[in-house]
Design a protein around this nucleic acid. Structure first.
Length: 342
DNA sequence: TAAGCGTGGAT
DNA sequence: TATCCAAGCTT
């Protein structure tokens, strides 16, 4: 049934492919590797809807990988603000410089895998989509489709190896990039987590989960542990219509991003509560934000009458232009508390 | 292998 | 409101 699966799927894709900004239109030549790579990195654990405006912004600002390679870390991080998983932005800039240095993207999967920010999925996807290489592309969509197609009942993540092997058996030699995108489109629009549209599925004839009854039972997943809660404080230090912003350390939580000074909630459990300098601090309320591995209540404390200047690595930022600072969402929410007071 | 790492939309 | 989840990578 292997050939039938890929044939059916590619026929379906020819009629139903989603039109996306980083895709070549049907009949066009292969898409620009830079755009493929950029979109794939942005799409890591991120929805198509969230990526679209960022992809537009980045390709407008930096039309080629050479342009991106020439950009400062600061500008790249600020442009990425709000998209999440900020190590992607750090690696994006690093990768662009490596690629520009060697004169273009490597075309084979093994070489792509060595670039920063490209793991098994992204290296395979770029090799297949941008360079027409046969590669076994497995993302969360493919995991779901394949687990159902082959009725693989072992829970994730342990099932990854078996799922990859099964995907290998149905990946065609020709058009493996289209095949990968077709699998992802199918997973996103037909073979969905809840309420799969089996009546519209080009693979339903071969689907063992459908045959067994309820495809939504697959893939099984290991239970996840509950999310702890933390309490932290951010500090609004204002003077002459400017606010004091710091640059967070290059690695770890929100690494490399501009931020309000805080009391260390990201590096420990609760923050220590101590403001960065002495003064007459006032409470501006609190916001709530949920990260992947903990929930945060973030109190905002403010001082506008400075006894002495803040010290260390930071900058006075015009409050009128706070949008352009590129604050990650938790701090952007906190800042909105201060702005609401004006 | 498991944990750390964001965010917003859907349900 | 709470939970789940998305075109995963790094250490």
């Amino acid at each position: 049934m292997d050939d039938r699966v890929s044939t059916q799927l590619l026929n379906w894709y020819d009629r139903n492919a989603r039109s996306l900004p980083w895709r070549a239109l049907p009949g066009e030549k292969a898409p620009d590797p830079y755009r493929v790579w950029l979109s794939e990195v942005m799409l890591q654990q991120t929805t198509v809807a969230a990526v679209k405006p960022y992809f537009q912004k980045f390709t407008q600002k930096w039309p080629t990988v050479q342009d991106l390679a020439a950009a400062s870390d600061e500008d790249v991080m600020a442009a990425w603000a709000g998209l999440g998983y900020y190590s992607r932005a750090r690696n994006l800039a690093k990768c662009a410089r490596e690629v520009a240095e060697i004169g273009g993207f490597p075309e084979n999967e093994a070489a792509l895998l060595k670039l920063p920010g490209l793991g098994a999925y992204t290296a395979a996807a770029v090799a297949a989509i941008a360079f027409g290489k046969r590669a076994v592309v497995v993302d969360a969509n493919v995991e779901r489709v394949v687990a159902r197609l082959f009725a693989i009942t072992e829970p994730l993540p342990a099932a990854r190896k078996v799922i990859r092997e099964a995907t290998d058996t149905i990946t065609p030699t020709e058009r493996s990039g289209d095949f990968a995108q077709a699998m992802m489109d199918l997973g996103a629009t037909i073979c969905t987590v809840r309420d799969p549209k089996c009546l519209l599925c080009p693979l339903s004839v071969d689907c063992r989960a459908k045959e067994a009854g309820d495809p939504t039972e697959l893939p099984k997943k290991a239970p996840k542990k509950q999310r702890p809660e933390r309490l932290g404080r951010a500090f609004w230090i204002e003077q002459n219509s400017k606010v004091w912003l710091v640059r967070r350390p290059g690695t770890g939580m929100l690494g490399g991003m501009r931020a309000l000074p805080d009391d260390g909630w990201s590096a420990r459990s609760d923050g220590h509560g101590e403001p960065p300098l002495a003064g007459d601090w006032e409470s501006f309320g609190a916001i709530r934000h949920v990260f992947t591995h903990f929930g945060l209540t973030l109190e905002l404390r403010a001082v506008t009458d400075l006894a002495k200047q803040p010290e260390g690595d930071g900058e006075w930022w015009p409050i009128e232009q706070l949008e352009e600072a590129g604050l990650p969402t938790a701090f952007a929410k906190a800042a909105s508390l201060a702005l609401a007071r004006k």
